[in-house]
Simulated assay, not measured.
Amino acid sequence: MKRLGTVLLALVGALMLAAGPAAAHSVVLGSSPEQGSEIAEAPEQVSVTFNEALQQQFAALTVVGPDGNLWSKGDPIVDGPTVSVEIDGLGPVGEYTIAYRVTSADGHPVSGTRTFTLTQEGTGTPGEAAAGDAAPASDVATDDGGGPAVWWFVVAGVIVVVAALWFVLRKPKA
């Protein structure tokens, strides 16, 4: 019984070592235009709102049309939890992609995309052709790392448990 108690204590200790710090990053609460919405006219600006204030530096926000051209004008503006960029009209009917990359309050970059559909031809003038993907093609925030890999903690925990089991279950020399 004493050995079983020691094994359980070692297991609990290993599991506690394996628990890393929580890494909560900014998450999207909404956008204007909203994800998947259909609009007939171009708004004056496009914005994405997060659950916490964003850092001012390194923000990127673009709008790419179905023609592959940029429709956003100028640099993005960060105002608390919202990043926005001006647009001067839209053009062809179809799906537009809002690509964002911001720095969350904890210093981690968060990026993703949102889409909306223009239902009536616009009169805006396109910018240059978009150069590749400005962000991953998903609405899920991504993490570029920066913290310790969780699997290191898991490996360390397994090693501790195996060592504890070996120590407890070995046969003592007579």
Rank of each mutant, 00 (worst) to 15 (best):
residue 57 Q to G: 08
residue 68 G to M: 08
residue 157 G to S: 12
residue 165 L to E: 02
residue 120 Q to S: 03
residue 174 A to N: 09
residue 61 L to V: 01
residue 88 D to C: 01
residue 168 V to E: 01
residue 142 T to I: 15
residue 47 S to E: 10
residue 74 G to A: 09
residue 48 V to L: 08
residue 50 F to V: 07
residue 147 G to D: 15
residue 138 S to A: 15
residue 29 L to E: 08
residue 167 F to P: 00
residue 132 G to V: 05
residue 19 A to N: 11
residue 107 G to S: 01
residue 85 V to H: 05
residue 162 V to R: 00
residue 114 R to T: 08
residue 110 V to F: 10
residue 132 G to Y: 03
residue 23 A to D: 13
residue 20 G to N: 10
residue 135 A to Y: 06
residue 36 G to S: 03
residue 1 M to D: 00
residue 128 E to Y: 00
residue 17 L to I: 03
residue 121 E to P: 13
residue 21 P to R: 15
residue 122 G to R: 10
residue 9 L to P: 06
residue 7 V to K: 04
residue 74 G to L: 09
residue 114 R to L: 14
residue 88 D to H: 15
residue 88 D to M: 14
residue 104 S to D: 08
residue 41 E to T: 10
residue 4 L to G: 07
residue 32 S to L: 15
residue 1 M to L: 13
residue 37 S to Y: 10
residue 137 A to E: 02
residue 94 G to Y: 03
residue 100 Y to M: 08
residue 162 V to P: 00
residue 103 T to C: 03
residue 134 A to E: 00
residue 66 P to A: 05
residue 6 T to P: 01
residue 142 T to H: 00
residue 161 V to G: 01
residue 167 F to D: 00
residue 145 G to P: 03
residue 126 P to T: 05
residue 129 A to T: 05
residue 148 P to K: 15
residue 166 W to I: 11
residue 9 L to G: 03
residue 96 Y to T: 11
residue 118 L to M: 01
residue 49 T to G: 04
residue 67 D to G: 10
residue 78 V to P: 02
residue 89 G to A: 13
residue 153 F to R: 13
residue 51 N to T: 12
residue 77 I to N: 06
residue 85 V to D: 00
residue 17 L to Q: 09
residue 125 T to I: 12
residue 26 S to V: 15
residue 49 T to F: 12
residue 86 E to D: 02
residue 60 A to T: 04
residue 86 E to C: 03
residue 44 E to N: 07
residue 10 A to I: 06
residue 3 R to M: 07
residue 99 A to L: 05
residue 55 Q to W: 04
residue 122 G to T: 11
residue 36 G to Q: 02
residue 17 L to T: 06
residue 139 D to N: 13
residue 152 W to N: 04
residue 163 A to H: 06
residue 6 T to E: 15
residue 159 I to W: 12
residue 39 I to Q: 03
residue 89 G to D: 14
residue 101 R to Y: 06
residue 154 V to C: 05
residue 50 F to N: 04
residue 146 G to W: 14
residue 96 Y to K: 10
residue 167 F to K: 03
residue 47 S to C: 07
residue 142 T to M: 13
residue 100 Y to K: 01
residue 86 E to G: 02
residue 137 A to R: 07
residue 96 Y to E: 07
residue 51 N to Q: 10
residue 106 D to M: 13
residue 36 G to D: 04
residue 51 N to S: 13
residue 17 L to Y: 10
residue 174 A to S: 12
residue 161 V to K: 03
residue 40 A to Y: 04
residue 107 G to Y: 11
residue 62 T to A: 07
residue 68 G to H: 01
residue 60 A to H: 05
residue 174 A to I: 13
residue 36 G to M: 02
residue 158 V to T: 14
residue 49 T to E: 12
residue 52 E to N: 08
residue 122 G to W: 11
residue 93 V to D: 04
residue 173 K to N: 09
residue 171 K to E: 02
residue 13 G to F: 15
residue 45 Q to K: 14
residue 6 T to I: 15
residue 25 H to M: 11
residue 8 L to A: 07
residue 97 T to Y: 00
residue 15 L to A: 11
residue 144 D to W: 15
residue 8 L to W: 09
residue 141 A to S: 08
residue 72 S to R: 12
residue 85 V to C: 07
residue 14 A to R: 08
residue 128 E to C: 01
residue 32 S to V: 15
residue 43 P to N: 04
residue 33 P to R: 07
residue 60 A to D: 10
residue 11 L to D: 06
residue 62 T to H: 08
residue 142 T to W: 09
residue 60 A to Y: 09
residue 172 P to N: 08
residue 134 A to R: 02
residue 132 G to H: 05
residue 47 S to W: 13
